[in-house]
Structures are given as C-alpha cells and as structure tokens.
C-alpha cells in the first residue's frame, strides 16, 4: 500500500516539473490579490506588469538559449543600450520610421554575431570572457556615438511596439479605457516562435544536444560552432527587439539603458528552471521566470516595500529556486 502511494507521488513529479512553476505564479497572484484586492488584479496594473516585463523577457529568452548551450551572455544589457542608441541616431538623422525601427534589431543582430564569431573563431576559453568584454565594448560604443547624452523624442510609429495600445472598444463597448499593450502581443508571438524553434526544429534539438554533451553533438556531425554562432546572434537580435520595445516605452535613448539587465535576465532563466550547466530548461519556464520577477517587483512596489528589500528578496528566490531543483534531482536519482 505504501508502494502504490509512492508511485502516484513519483508519477506526479514530471507534472510538477512541467507546471510547478505556474503553480507558484498562481500562489503569488492569489496572495497579492488578497493583500491588494483593489489594485493588483486591476486591468491597469496587470497590463503595467506586462509592459514592464516585455523588454526584459526578450533578454531572458535570448540568454536562455545561450544558457541551454552551457554558455552565458553578459552583454545583452549593453546590446539593448547600443541598439537603442542606434535607433535614436537613425531617428535624429531623419530616416523614415520603418528604417529606424529596423535599426534596433539589426544592431542587436550584429552585436550577437560579433559575440558568436568571437567565441568560436577566437576560441575563447569561455563565453563569459568574450561577452564580459563586449559588455564594456558595446556600452562604450553606444556612448561614443551618442556623445554620452540621452536622445529623446521618437515618432509615434516607432513607439508603437513599446507603447502601442490595442483598443478593446469592439469587445467591451465604446469608450472603454481597457486595452491590450502591443508589446504583450509581440512577447507572446516571439515566445511562441522560439518555442516552436527549440522544440520542433532540428537546430533547436541540436542546441539542447550541445548543452547536454558537445562531444556527442560533434560526433553526430553537427557543426557546433555554426550552431553557437546562430544562438548568440539570435540572443543579440532579441536584445535588439528589446531595445525597440524600450524605445517605445521610454521615448528616450539614455546611457544607462539596460544597465545590469543581463543579471535580471540570467535570474529569470534560472528561476524558470533552466540548468546553468546547459541542456535543460523550457521556454515556458523562462516565461514563468520573467513573470515571477515582474509580479514580485510589482507587488512589492504596490506594498511600498523598499527597493533594497526587493533586491534581498529576488536574490533569495534565485537561491531557493535552485535549491528546490537540487532537492528534486536528489530525489529523482535516488532509486
């Protein structure tokens, strides 16, 4: 009888592995709703959370893919700043809005490509070193081209990605104030595309294989360097999209844009259950990790908790999340 109980428990493990993190979000939402019944679940506040996480989620998604290959990208915070500056300069130069909008992802793409080529061609002992270097380089270049001062004021067309609103008049009646942020739709679409990419294409499978055992991937005839270049380039590209979103949200390109956001991205990925040693993690987990960080910050702000306590809490959650994972692994390997 003990045994049958045990086996139902064991059967539940994969379920928790997949959806446990969503359960955590549900608990956080419930608790915050009880603590702040009028505000937290209001349309305005929820859309606000999504608008805040939208640009961060782009960084997290890119860094996630890199971490799956057992790598790291420390430069995404600087890439977002450089792509934002590129966009701002193109805008100031009077280029048409559709060109200006392409500049941010294009700059991000090139930065990522630079990282990927550096890591593979220069045979850096670890991506940490290459991307630590480019963390300084990209932000330095961003300040060089902008003169180190903010550039403010973009056309409405450019801002639509980060600041656009999809009105719900047709559904909720004329004159309603509720809307869906464009950035939320973009985030969902991009996460879906990358979920398909990682789970249903050969390159996606190879990214996981490289994280599991690069030697095995090489022996299987996979061009590991080529895949790594693709991964770092996509990571930079996503940071560039993040820059485009941020341009819309803040209407400004400023020297400190995205400062330390690479650490938030890594934190979200780790909280979302990806292994730092590569090969493990899901797109859904990244989404959940980003949401947990976003909801936590939002909830603590609503409760007027000091930003210093927020830092302490987020740090603690990273450690606890990983410790739970350690416990789970211990449990599932004990046979």
């Amino acid at each position: 009888m003990d045994k049958s109980q045990d086996s139902t428990f064991v059967k539940l493990i994969p379920f928790f592995e997949k959806f446990g993190i969503l359960l955590l979000i549900l608990i956080m939402v419930t608790v915050l709703h009880i603590l702040q019944p009028d505000v937290f679940l209001s349309w305005r506040n929820i859309t606000n959370v999504f608008k805040q996480v939208s640009w961060q989620s782009m960084l997290a998604l890119g860094v996630f893919m890199v971490i799956v290959t057992a790598g790291i990208d420390l430069s995404v915070g600087s890439i977002i700043m450089l792509s934002l500056m590129g966009l701002a300069i193109a805008s100031k130069a009077g280029m048409p809005w559709y060109v200006v909008m392409l500049v941010a992802p294009a700059v991000g793409f090139l930065c990522g490509l630079f990282n990927g080529l550096g890591i593979t061609l220069l045979k850096m002992p670890h991506p940490f070193i290459m991307t630590l270097g480019t963390l300084y380089i990209f932000r330095g270049v961003g300040n060089l081209i902008s003169g180190g001062v903010p550039i403010t004021g973009f056309a409405d067309e450019i801002r639509v990605i980060g600041n656009g609103k999809i009105k719900l008049d047709a559904i909720l009646g004329e004159g309603t104030r509720e809307y869906i942020p464009t950035s939320l739709i973009l985030m969902i679409v991009i996460f879906f595309i990358f979920w398909v990419f990682l789970n249903h294409t050969r390159i996606g499978k190879w990214i996981y294989a490289i994280g599991g055992n690069p030697g095995a991937a090489r022996a299987a005839g996979i061009n590991v360097n080529r895949i790594l270049i693709i991964v770092y380039t996509l990571c930079g590209f996503l940071a560039g999209i993040g820059g485009l979103i941020l341009a819309g949200r803040t209407n400004s390109a400023y020297p400190n844009a995205g400062l330390q956001s690479e650490l938030d991205a890594i934190a979200a990925v780790i909280i979302g259950g990806a292994s730092f040693f590569g090969g493990r993690g899901t797109v859904l987990g990244v989404f959940a990790g980003v949401m947990i960080m976003g909801i936590l910050r939002n909830g603590l702000n609503l409760m007027n908790v000091s930003v210093f306590w927020q830092q302490v809490l987020i740090g603690s959650i990273i450690i606890i999340a990983v410790y739970i994972d350690v416990l789970r692994r211990d449990f599932s390997t004990r046979k």
């Binding site: 996606g204 095995a216 299987a220």
Partner: peptide, 28 residues
C-alpha cells in the same frame, strides 16, 4: 558520445532527425 539530457530516440537520430515539410520549413 550520447547527450544524457535527451531521450533515447533523440540520441539515436541526433544529426539525422526525421523531419516533415510544412511549407518552406522542416519540422521534427
């Protein structure tokens, strides 16, 4: 030369995965 994080089937077909064509894309 196996990737421990992947299932048996994925390892056997690593690098030579069967795909189906959907439009211009190849999906696993």
């Amino acid at each position: 030369a196996l990737a421990g994080n992947l299932p048996i089937g994925d390892n056997i077909f690593l690098g030579r995965e069967p795909v189906k064509k959907v439009g211009p894309f190849n999906f696993l």
